[in-house]
């Protein structure tokens, strides 16, 4: 195993662990529910997930028309599947399957 790969993994993994763990040590017990930090943290979740979705979609939308087309098919499938079953796993798999099927049918 190459030393640079191990060093990179340890540095990135160690710092990422600190980002995930250290904030838990903050004392949030006395934080007022209508305080600025509480409102900020409550709003962070939906904003973060929306951000991650858009960040994943941007490379697909900047790709060829075929990739854009099958990404659109996938998005539509996720929405329809979620509306139908209200299940995250079902909607995820339906979106991926629809995207793969669109590629198989010529959008590749």
């Amino acid at each position: 195993m190459r030393a640079d790969v191990l060093q990179l993994a340890l540095m990135a993994g160690g710092l990422t662990y600190l980002w995930r763990y250290l904030p838990l040590r903050l004392n949030l017990g006395d934080m007022p529910k209508d305080g600025l930090l509480a409102r900020f943290l409550a709003a962070t979740g939906p904003a973060a997930i929306a951000t991650l979705f858009i960040a994943e979609m941007l490379p697909l939308l900047q790709d060829t028309q075929a990739v854009q087309g099958r990404a659109g098919v996938g998005v539509l499938a996720v929405i329809l599947a979620f509306v139908w079953r209200k299940s995250v796993v079902f909607a995820t798999l339906a979106g991926a399957f629809a995207c793969g099927a669109a590629a198989a049918l010529g959008l590749s």
């Binding site: 979620f82 399957f97 995207c99 590629a103 590749s108």
Partner: peptide
């Protein structure tokens, strides 16, 4: 390639489904 396309879309699909679940 179709399997690759499906796998590539798995992560955005997961985020979109999670977003819909808390919308």
């Amino acid at each position: 390639p179709a399997v690759g396309a499906a796998l590539d879309f798995m992560l955005p699909a997961l985020f979109l489904a999670l977003l819909l679940s808390i919308l």
